[in-house]
């Protein structure tokens, strides 16, 4: 009888211990689950932030593409009833043997106008470029670049002229319209 009571007591105590262990395990699981859910939340937040960033990048890229397309359209086609302004700055230097500052100014201005004409011609019609490099024993012996511009320019206007320290700068502008090319 005594042994049976002791056995039952032992069993009850062992069952109690077993319950305690189970409860401690379930608490740890809860903590783990909470930590995992927190991690998942963080990951979700990160993913959301990344998607927002990607959306912004896509929107920026779209806007850039639209701007590029618009600029290409504007550059390629001279539209009717719309004119395009092309301006260029030319520089000229007065010769050393001038008799007066006024002459120096006049000559420098003339040279600057020619330079501005050249610049406008380059913009409107383009430049022909030829390059030639001579290499001997793996060393550059001679490097030559030739450029050539040829155009006819009408109705170029002087916008601004500055003359300082013998250097004359002239800003010139031409207006190109569809009617100039339509025949």
């Amino acid at each position: 009888m005594r042994y049976s009571v002791l056995l039952s007591l032992l069993l009850s105590v062992s069952s109690l211990f077993a319950n305690g262990q189970n409860s401690s395990n379930s608490v740890e699981d809860l903590h783990r689950a909470k930590a995992e859910s927190a991690l998942i939340k963080d990951e979700l937040d990160n993913a959301r932030a990344q998607t927002i960033l990607i959306k912004d990048e896509i929107a920026q890229a779209r806007a850039e593409n639209q701007e590029k397309l618009a600029s290409i359209k504007a550059e390629e086609v001279l539209q009717k009833n719309k004119s395009t302004h092309i301006s260029a700055i030319g520089q000229g230097v007065s010769p050393l043997n001038t008799s007066s500052p006024a002459q120096a100014y006049a000559l420098a201005k003339r040279a600057a106008i020619a330079d501005a004409y050249r610049s406008i011609a380059e913009k409107v019609k383009g430049v022909r470029i030829e390059g030639q490099d001579t290499i001997k024993n793996m060393m550059v012996q001679k490097s030559t670049i030739r450029t050539h511009v040829q155009a006819m320019i009408k109705n170029a206007d002087i916008v601004e002229t500055t003359f300082k320290d013998g250097l004359c700068e002239v800003e010139m502008e031409i207006v190109i319209s569809y009617a100039d090319f339509a025949q």
Binding site: A114, Y117, R146, H148, A151, M152, K154, A156
Partner: peptide, 25 residues
């Protein structure tokens, strides 16, 4: 005369990084 229109001819030669240019109107 400039407003009437001028022919522009520009030649530039760069040899060993030394530049010479001639512009004729």
């Amino acid at each position: 005369i400039h407003r009437l229109g001028l022919h522009v001819e520009h030649r530039e030669i760069t040899t060993n990084l030394q530049n010479r240019s001639t512009t004729t109107l």
